[in-house]
Amino acid sequence: MRTVALMMLVIPGVIAGLGIKLMRDLFFNILHPPFPFLWVQFLVGLIIFVMGIAFIAGFVLHRDRKNNKVGPRFQKKQKKEVPAE
């Protein structure tokens, strides 16, 4: 089970690393074939990077909520029950 959790974190981490590489290549004027312009390559890299980091952050937050290790700010809000009339 831990290997599955590790793979769930490694794959988005590698994808986020690919996003960083695509953004970095803009500064060195390296254009990769599927992209017509450098700014398109940068935007795709930024989107990939943000999505990878967001997945990892969501995974960690979900795990910590389940183990009750988050502060009151990040706990799920309880729904208030409305009394029946």
Rank of each mutant, 00 (worst) to 15 (best):
P34D: 01
L61Y: 05
K80P: 03
P33K: 14
E81N: 08
K21W: 08
G45K: 02
V40T: 13
A54T: 14
P72R: 09
F35G: 07
P34G: 14
L61P: 07
L9R: 03
F74G: 06
L61W: 08
F49L: 00
K66N: 03
G19Y: 02
F55A: 04
I56W: 00
V50E: 03
I56F: 02
K76P: 01
R2V: 12
L43P: 01
G71K: 10
E81A: 10
M23C: 06
G71L: 08
F27K: 09
A16I: 03
I56Y: 03
A16N: 05
G45A: 10
F49D: 00
M51F: 00
L46G: 11
V40G: 05
L61N: 04
P83F: 09
F49E: 01
R24T: 06
F74W: 15
M23E: 00
G19F: 02
R73W: 03
G52W: 02
G13A: 06
V4A: 03
F55P: 06
W39T: 15
F37N: 14
P83A: 12
R2F: 15
I53Y: 01
R2D: 13
K77C: 05
I11C: 01
R65Y: 07
E81R: 10
L31S: 09
K21H: 04
V14D: 04
A54C: 06
L38S: 02
P36C: 06
V14Y: 12
A16Q: 02
N68E: 15
L46W: 00
